[in-house]
Design a protein around this nucleic acid. Structure first.
Length: 448
RNA sequence: GGAAGCGUAUCGAAGCGGUCAUAACGGCCCUGACUCGAAAUCAGGUAGCCCGCAAGGGCUCGUGGGUUCGAAUCCCACCGCUUCCGCCA
């Protein structure tokens, strides 16, 4: 079945470029682009490469013809101006007639130009970003590759209840009220559990500030052109809530407003790298494959997150990628939660991304790891879409690379926290690092 | 929500039908001179994109349309920003 490039067009299309790679690169390296598509198991897109090359060729031919006609027209218009100034009206009239001769062909070409540009753009939007050579090749998430484990995944000799059951022992969650008020996928956190939630965010904030990141509270709503600048149509459709009657969307993560911060900006090279950590609530439709079927606070429409983003020189992005995920691992380890890193294989990697890995926390209840964070290198794709450029020290301008990573996202993170810190007597130990944020408490004791 | 003003290069800003878009003027930045070095001063340079081997050409004055031989400049619509008033945590 041919890939339907129009399937995501239900959302409004603004003027932004939605493409992920430079068409010049595609023109010069069609085989690289095709191999990349094969690596991502999107073979149905393969014919699009030759198709877009053909369209691009024709488009440039039309453009060339139109350009020379326009050049001719400009020349004549200029000479008319001169003749008028000298009062030679008859000669000016004769020149006017000349313009009419080719204005028809020019009008034809001027209609074709945007038509071809649109066709090219439509295809280019679906050509995925070139993945990093280090990305393991695989069809889907079942072929993601475990990179490294940190900490001992312990299975205690007593039973670990489902996370909402743990929370209920502390009278810490009210899903019934949440359903009445907002529906499935929302929650009330109560008492010490709510406090724990805020403590984790506050601790994570200070943790990142301690690592030299600049703290930022961004807008929680953004415009459509920022949305399309930071994510693909598929993601947008599955994730973003739109405000009715306004050109505003609720952010799905503060990455959106943090990378969007640089839209249309010329960034002085000496201000790089920009290393920022931001707090925000996040809103997601979760319309995709999983939906909201999981019970509890694992997959929800609203959560809070401490995020980190980096804007840097292209050659530095692999280095920052490693630093970023290391931060998350270190944070979880500082709270005694075992984690592992799982590299996203080619087929599971979003089209915009160059490389991505998940940080997963240990669940002693499920006896497996589950995702608590995601670290991505977007290469220059977001920069291209958002028209953010760097002004180099020696005058040249180039696209920076952008990266983002979760520091911590409760309440999901609380699942890992509660499960790993639960004691046989039903109490939950508060790790030293978190105690100052919990009013000095060393453990939480169940109320029922 | 009401009123007014504004959207021009990396920034500020002039231009208000052809002689002002290789965009005045100024700032930033770069190079050179002077200096032991720096500051100050002086001189010069500094838009992006597209097509083209090149020469060269085209496009871009918020966006889209209109008038015109010709639009940054006139007209219409839309978008955005600012200020004042109103409302408000």
């Amino acid at each position: 079945m041919a890939y339907n490039v129009f399937q995501y067009f239900s959302v409004a299309v603004a003027e932004t470029e939605y493409i992920m790679i430079d068409i010049k690169f595609l023109r010069e390296n069609p085989e690289v682009v095709k191999q990349n598509i094969r690596n991502k198991f999107q073979d149905s897109k393969l014919p699009l490469v030759d198709e877009v090359i053909e369209l691009d060729k024709k488009s440039r031919e039309f453009k060339q013809e139109a350009d020379s006609l326009r050049a001719e027209k400009n020349k004549i218009a200029k000479s008319i101006g001169a003749l008028m100034a000298q009062g030679k009206k008859d000669e000016a009239e004769a020149e006017k007639k000349k313009v009419a001769e080719f204005s028809e062909r020019l009008a034809e070409l001027e209609k074709l130009e945007p038509e071809y540009a649109e066709k090219i753009k439509t295809i280019m939007m679906t050509i995925p970003n070139i993945i990093d050579p280090s990305v393991p090749i695989g069809k889907d998430d079942s072929e993601n590759v475990e990179i490294e484990r940190f900490g001992e995944p312990v299975v205690p000799d007593f039973e670990i209840p489902y996370h909402t059951d743990i929370m209920e022992r502390f009278d810490g969650i009210d899903l019934d009220s949440a359903r009445r008020v907002a529906g499935n996928g929302f929650y009330y956190l109560m008492g010490d559990i709510a406090r724990l939630h805020s403590s984790v965010i506050a601790y994570a904030r200070d943790f990142m500030i301690g690592r030299g990141f600049r703290y930022c509270v961004p807008p929680f709503m953004i415009r459509a052109d920022v949305v399309t600048g930071v994510m693909s149509f598929a993601e947008m459709d599955a994730m973003m809530y739109k405000i009715e009657g306004e050109d505003l969307y609720l952010i799905g993560t503060s990455e959106h407003s943090m990378i969007g911060k640089f839209i249309d900006q010329m960034i002085p090279e000496k201000t790089l790298p920009q290393t920022l950590t931001s707090y925000s609530p996040c809103f997601r439709k979760e319309k995709g494959a999983h939906g909201i079927e999981e019970r509890g606070v694992y997959r929800i429409h609203q959560f809070e997150k401490q995020e980190m983003i980096v804007v840097c020189k292209p050659e530095e992005s692999p280095m920052w990628f490693d630093k970023l995920w290391q931060n998350t691992v270190d944070l979880f380890r500082s709270l005694d939660i075992p984690v592992r890193t799982l590299e996203c294989c080619s087929g599971d990697l979003a089209d915009l991304k160059v490389k991505s890995l998940d940080v997963e926390a240990w669940s002693p209840r499920q006896k497996k790891y589950f995702e608590v964070g995601s670290c991505s290198n977007l290469g220059d794709a977001q920069a291209r879409r958002l028209r953010m450029r760097v002004q180099g020290e020696n005058g040249e301008k180039y696209l920076p690379h952008t990266l983002n990573n979760t520091v911590v996202a409760p309440p999901r993170m609380l699942i890992a926290f509660l499960e790993n810190n639960l004691q046989a007597d039903g109490s939950v130990l508060i790790p030293k690092a978190l105690q100052p944020y919990m009013g000095g408490q060393t453990k939480l004791v169940p109320t029922k």
